[in-house]
Design a protein around this nucleic acid. Sequence first.
DNA 1: TCATAACCGAGACGGTACGTCTGGTCTTAGT
DNA 2: ACTAAGACCAGACGTACCGTCTCGGTTATGA
Lengths: 208, 208, 208, 208
Amino acid sequence: MAESTAQEETRARRSPDPRRRSERARRAIVDAAAELMGEVGYAGLTMEAIAARARVGKQTIYRWWPSKAAVVLDVFTALTGGVAGEPLPDTGDLAEDLRTVFRATVDEFRVPEMDRTTRAFTAELQHDPAFAEAVEERMLRPNMRAFEERLRSAVAAGEVDPGIDLRLATELLLGPFHHRWLLRTGPLTHEYVDELVDTVLRALRPRT
Amino acid sequence: MAESTAQEETRARRSPDPRRRSERARRAIVDAAAELMGEVGYAGLTMEAIAARARVGKQTIYRWWPSKAAVVLDVFTALTGGVAGEPLPDTGDLAEDLRTVFRATVDEFRVPEMDRTTRAFTAELQHDPAFAEAVEERMLRPNMRAFEERLRSAVAAGEVDPGIDLRLATELLLGPFHHRWLLRTGPLTHEYVDELVDTVLRALRPRT
Amino acid sequence: MAESTAQEETRARRSPDPRRRSERARRAIVDAAAELMGEVGYAGLTMEAIAARARVGKQTIYRWWPSKAAVVLDVFTALTGGVAGEPLPDTGDLAEDLRTVFRATVDEFRVPEMDRTTRAFTAELQHDPAFAEAVEERMLRPNMRAFEERLRSAVAAGEVDPGIDLRLATELLLGPFHHRWLLRTGPLTHEYVDELVDTVLRALRPRT
Amino acid sequence: MAESTAQEETRARRSPDPRRRSERARRAIVDAAAELMGEVGYAGLTMEAIAARARVGKQTIYRWWPSKAAVVLDVFTALTGGVAGEPLPDTGDLAEDLRTVFRATVDEFRVPEMDRTTRAFTAELQHDPAFAEAVEERMLRPNMRAFEERLRSAVAAGEVDPGIDLRLATELLLGPFHHRWLLRTGPLTHEYVDELVDTVLRALRPRT
DNA sequence: TCATAACCGAGACGGTACGTCTGGTCTTAGT
DNA sequence: ACTAAGACCAGACGTACCGTCTCGGTTATGA
């Protein structure tokens, strides 16, 4: 995000001292942004409104976050408890484990705040490369790696054909789900993800 | 300064008469928007700049398009020649036909203008429900229906299991592609789509 | 603005043929302008609104009047019956005659339409030299000449000092009235103009 | 694009804090407006042009002035040094004092900037009641009061008939001058005002 | 008499300015 | 010294009108 690597003495834009950061202000800003996301959505969200709602100077926001997207990224992190990329369950039954994960995700996306925030991310990703990099690194890639790990374990267990490219396999699972959610091409239900998992696994199982 | 606006007469916001529409202005606007999309991208695009570049009054844009997104939708329509939802090739060999289609799509998305415009759409879709409806109806659903038709033909030919839900099957093909493109989780090459098609077809083929 | 002086054959801006002028449209425009003057005042008046109210194309207005001010000038002409500069009464008693005239003027200016229109004129006079010339020639100078004539008659009758400059004398009468009316520095009543006339005449009467 | 304006917080239109006002910006705006008044006149003056010339955001103008007229009022105040209603000279010779004052005024109105600005005021007064009130209070009434004071002194000195209404007497002096200036009914010279003063004083002097 | 030139209502057009909103930076008071 | 508050410069927003320019339709002259 920062474009200069050298930390010159005379640098006008001194980076602020994080030790002095007001935790009260940080929380107020993230909370205000979260509330406003729910009320007016990402597009209707403005720095001005966040500052006003949080009773904080605009500069206090700009001091610690480079953009609206970055604030919302922290909102999201707060919503999800900051966990991304934690390992998938591994009961030994791949189908069952995937169904568990996807059903939970379906439930999560039913929470409007989560849905809206995630949509906003996906949209913002297309415009802001720096933000894209941050989101991908903090959320997307860890998540995909967790899927690949579970699949690797399934390969070892003989449930999945070792010739399968694991990234492709992961996309085979996440892609249709994401497509349906993002483009609203159908209902996102437990039944849907069950069928999705079953069908994909037909493609992954070892050739006889 | 004005004591009152006195628009009792002008009110009622009559919709304009399309017969009187200036084709010259329409083209200039779409062309200008297309150029600017390439130069500054969707986020940097402004109605003001489009009007200036097209040498057109802003009102002439607002008269015919409700939003920036709507203009860009016409840019896209112009780029693709207005075709959406045309039938997929049907040589009798489903795998071959799908590879052909996906390889062509890969090539299309290599054109930066196409890539940026389509990304802008996908982003805008998340914010603007009316626009979303328009894009889905004019582009997305026709396209998916074309896939479903080709798959239906493959079912009849015995290439695809009749028990498969065709919408799910379509998502199985489009989802991973879309996921990889939108989230840049890997290279979009002919090799990739070949492998994608082959793997998905393993899930679709009739059970022995 | 026009760079060509010669009246070329191909000159685009031909002056219209007054014989073909639609009396219906003319009346509708003047009436609409008069109504709107009363409703929103001169500043709030727009060509667009006049055209809409009169159910007339804007071009029909621009064809026959060069500006908003010109239309309103015709409104005024219609209001006053087109008379300007008609001789003042001459009963032989100057004071009485002036009181009569001024009292009538006070009454006229009590009509809001008249008041507003005349104010609008006086304002517009300051901005638009061409309009100023028209108003001065059609209304102001004839009026002043009428006063001077009456005063000349009074000089002959021995009521006014022959050494007095008649234009100055006229201004002595009209100026205070105009000042009070335009700048609202006091009430415009019959009593006021009676006192004004009496006081001015003290300055005009022959020196003993 | 925005789903809602979400100005719940920003509402209430708090009036700005004058202590924080930038004197640099204030001066730049008034100076720019003064320059533009000279170049394009009041009618041609736009807020946009003032902002551009002053290198100031438009909002900074609208924050402190309600209208173009208000800005120009400050231009005028700056031009005249902010003095209005200062006492007239009182040498004991009323005629001489009035001649002095009127000759100075004639000279002032020869400065095109002053002439144009004052005309613009007088015009604007007719359209904008709030502005009218401001101008009348800040300039017109103090000025008239100064005249009345000088006349009151002259009454005490036996130069003016005590039965004369002093407001009327003031209008008798200012009205003809104003009339001739505003309506251009004659040249505004020292000779003219000398004669005006002499003639008016004939009306004011004590009856023998 | 009847073709045809013009005016007519309507309204789209290229423009300018409006007054508002937000973005991101800078300044001021206050604690 | 750091915060909240908010003024600052900048510029896009969507609207209102401007004055000009077609567009058909309808008179009403004059060849």
